Amino acid sequence: MTPSEPSPASTSSKPETSDPASKAQERMARFRALQARAKTSSDQNLKEATKESQRLATDPSQLNAVTRKHAIASQKLLKADIEESGGDFERKRAWDWTIEESERWDKRVKKRDAHRDDTAFRDYQRESEKAYKRQLKNMGAPDLEKYTREKMAAIEKAAAAGTLDIVETEDGEMIAVDKDGTFFSTADSTAFAQHKPDKAAVDRLVADLRKAEEASLKKRRDRQAKNGEDNGDVTYINEKNKQFNQKLARFYNKYTAEIRESFERGTMV
């Protein structure tokens, strides 16, 4: 062995001293990265929690509830002060209202009381009327701008085709009416059958029908749960027949589900 050649002991000792140092540096780098990730997550969670607390603090429903409670407390305090001084609270409060505002308020209170007294079941005709009014209320306000545009387009079309007539009403008002009844329908017109509603109106109708069907099914389930009927309609005449129907349902319900739903909706032909 020449003096310039390194000894085996010296060559084997260098990796042993360098490997632990590199591993320590790698572990420290991973630790720093985990620390940075944890700090980022903590800051993000704190920011989201702050936003959530601010949203809860400015919730409109909670603000309305607080405002309502404050108004009720103020009214009770004012009433107590006036009664202690020997005054009439209702007379004192009426000074702050005009005749129109008082009449509107009385009408609102009367309507609210009538609605509260009309919650009980009377007959099916009254229930149908209430459901009809509720559906009309949920439809929203009519689109008068669209109605005006369609009316003007129909009048222009009728004027261009020469089928526009000017009709005088009993009170002397002049009205433009198209002869074929494409817009101003008469008893003889059939143009209403050609009307095609827009997609928003169709979606609103479908959503209303689905909502009514879900409400009906919910009432039906509640009634069945109250009567102890957990298997749908009563299709049995005794307990033995009930067990037989349950056995059939386990095997064949998955094949007859669509037919049964069609029968329930009344769309089965």
Results as ranks from 00 to 15, higher is better:
E5R: 12
S7C: 11
A9C: 03
S10K: 10
S10M: 08
T11L: 06
S12G: 06
S12T: 11
S12Y: 12
K14V: 06
P15H: 03
T17W: 10
S22C: 11
K23Q: 10
K23P: 08
Q25F: 05
A29M: 12
A29V: 09
F31S: 15
R32Y: 00
A36M: 13
A36N: 15
N45F: 03
N45A: 11
T50D: 03
K51G: 00
L56C: 06
L56I: 06
A57H: 10
D59P: 00
D59V: 00
P60M: 03
N64M: 14
N64Q: 15
V66L: 03
A71C: 13
A73C: 04
K76M: 09
L77T: 13
L78G: 08
A80F: 09
A80N: 09
D81N: 12
E84K: 10
E84P: 01
G87W: 11
G87A: 09
R91M: 09
K92V: 07
T98D: 10
T98A: 01
T98I: 01
E100A: 10
E101H: 06
R104M: 09
R104A: 10
W105V: 04
W105P: 00
K107P: 03
K107M: 08
R108F: 02
K110Y: 01
K111V: 01
R112Y: 05
H115G: 07
F121H: 13
R122K: 15
Y124A: 11
R126W: 00
E129C: 04
K130Y: 03
A131V: 03
R134T: 05
Q135S: 06
K137R: 05
K137P: 02
N138E: 13
M139H: 14
G140A: 04
P142N: 03
D143Y: 07
E145P: 02
T148A: 14
K151D: 08
K151W: 13
M152R: 06
M152G: 02
A153R: 11
E156C: 06
A158Y: 12
G162E: 00
T163R: 13
L164I: 08
V167P: 00
E170H: 00
E173P: 01
A176Y: 01
A176S: 03
D178V: 07
D178A: 05
S185P: 07
F192H: 15
A193H: 08
D198T: 12
A200E: 10
A200F: 00
V202G: 07
R204N: 13
V206T: 08
A207H: 13
A207N: 12
D208E: 12
R210V: 01
A212C: 11
A212R: 14
A215L: 03
L217Q: 09
L217M: 08
R220K: 09
D222T: 05
D222L: 11
R223A: 15
Q224K: 02
K226T: 14
N227C: 14
G228C: 05
E229G: 14
D230H: 12
D230C: 04
D233S: 04
Y236D: 11
I237K: 15
N238M: 05
N238T: 03
E239C: 01
K240N: 10
N241R: 13
Q243H: 12
Q243W: 13
N245M: 12
R250M: 11
Y252G: 00
N253H: 07
K254T: 02
T256R: 07
R265M: 14
G266H: 06
T267M: 02
T267E: 05
M268K: 14
V269L: 05
V269K: 11
